[in-house]
Design a protein around this nucleic acid. Structure first.
Lengths: 227, 227
DNA sequence: CAAATCTATATTGCATAGAAGATGAGATTA
DNA sequence: TAATCTCATCTTCTATGCAATATAGATTTG
């Protein structure tokens, strides 16, 4: 607990509440805490060597983000999404990310496209080496860099939250090699359209890319539920 | 849908945290707590006759909703939005509400349209009688009923949150009689398109309706800042 | 007189503890 | 046997208190 002790020169002071929120969020996103799991406050508190108060505050924040659900006097559990809700979140993504992408493409600088290219290269090597956790990170990083030039912080925050609510399901689906390869091809295609400034083609591809991801995921979940 | 009529003493049907969150949210939405206002925990706690713990948890939730901002060791203040952020939120509304509306119109039942009509009638009388607070409520109720048939809870929740972030600015603008009358005409037009099942015209009108609201608001804010 | 430093006070952040509500196993009854 | 009740136990929920931090005014210093 001595790592928080930045008395001099500490620009960013983090309270315990925020640190716990971040840690728990990461655990949920990574699937370490699975959907429906009970989040017992004193267990979490003793795991982080803090009291239950900052744990509770962190859980309230995650509740507002949609990642956990509170039941009065029964505690918090990791939220779960129905098929319909998953589809709905993907539909919202198509709308918002399409808008972001269309706004971003005309404003992209060369170096930004270069950065995106670097990410895709690393993505490809991660794919070959089967580094699953890296794959997810780079995928998120790539999509993020595509939208950053749009300069739309509020939209980006919503999109980020949508990803936070979906990612733990997507992570399950990473086992589908076919989906990964399709995603890779799509990504290079998206980048090509960016370079050429072809907004219409780019958006169309993004739309089908997200839709395909959704369909793959649902199919995977159904298959998993059926076995 | 928040009828909270127990002002003195104990909150009963919820946890105190949730009750405080609801009450504070309402105060911010209504403009009773203005943007930039310091939300001192002790003052709020003693005002509701509770301790600071549920107050802090409520504030964390409102933070995640975007209504307040925490500064470590300095406390929470009511969030404020720049012109650009306001515009952005309205743009997101156009996207999401357009989608909701398009999905809802084909599924609307007669009685639902009747309910919407009733709301508009009450809206008109409220307009004539100058009942400002009622106006805002009915406006929200009308828009909500237009989207409910879409059966898209996640989208609706996001839209609801967008409204929560915008409404206190809109409420300032209610003084513009012209805007109110334009809104009324738009609303009747929207309902007419619903009855006729004319999705395309309905969406187009909704889009310009929201856009006009945004333009009016920005203009109003600029004029107010300039005086 | 201005700038820096110190001190007092107010406010937040967190821990501890006890009250309130939920859960489940064993006892009791029909 | 089956259903219901009771009680012990666990967990959450909230209050209280203390420590850490920020802020403003007073004091000192150059």
């Amino acid at each position: 607990m001595a790592e928080n002790n930045n008395k001099t020169g500490g620009f960013k002071r983090q309270t315990i509440t925020e640190a716990v929120a971040e840690a728990l969020r990461e655990e949920i996103l990574s699937g370490q805490q699975k959907e429906g799991a009970q989040l017992r406050q004193d267990a979490i508190a003793s795991r982080f060597n803090v009291s239950r108060i900052p744990v509770r505050e962190a859980l309230r924040q995650l509740e507002a983000e949609g990642l956990v659900t509170f039941y009065a006097h029964k505690g918090a559990v990791v939220s779960s999404l129905s098929r319909e809700e998953i589809r709905e979140l993907f539909d919202i993504r198509r709308l918002l990310e399409g808008d972001l992408f269309a706004r971003a493409i005309p404003k992209m600088q060369k170096e930004l496209i270069q950065d995106a290219e670097d990410i895709l290269d690393r993505y490809d090597t991660a794919l070959e080496n089967g580094e699953v956790s890296l794959w997810g990170e780079l995928n998120a990083e790539f999509h993020h860099i595509l939208y950053i030039a749009a300069d739309r912080p509020k939209t980006l925050a919503i999109v980020q939250n949508l990803h936070n609510n979906i990612d733990r399901y997507l992570r399950i689906q990473l086992h589908s090699a076919g989906a990964r390869k399709n995603a890779r091809d799509d990504h290079w295609g998206l980048l090509k359209h960016c370079k050429e400034g072809n907004v219409e083609a780019a958006i169309k591809l993004l739309d089908s890319h997200i839709q395909a991801g959704c369909d793959d995921l649902i199919e995977f979940l159904d298959a998993q539920a059926g076995n």
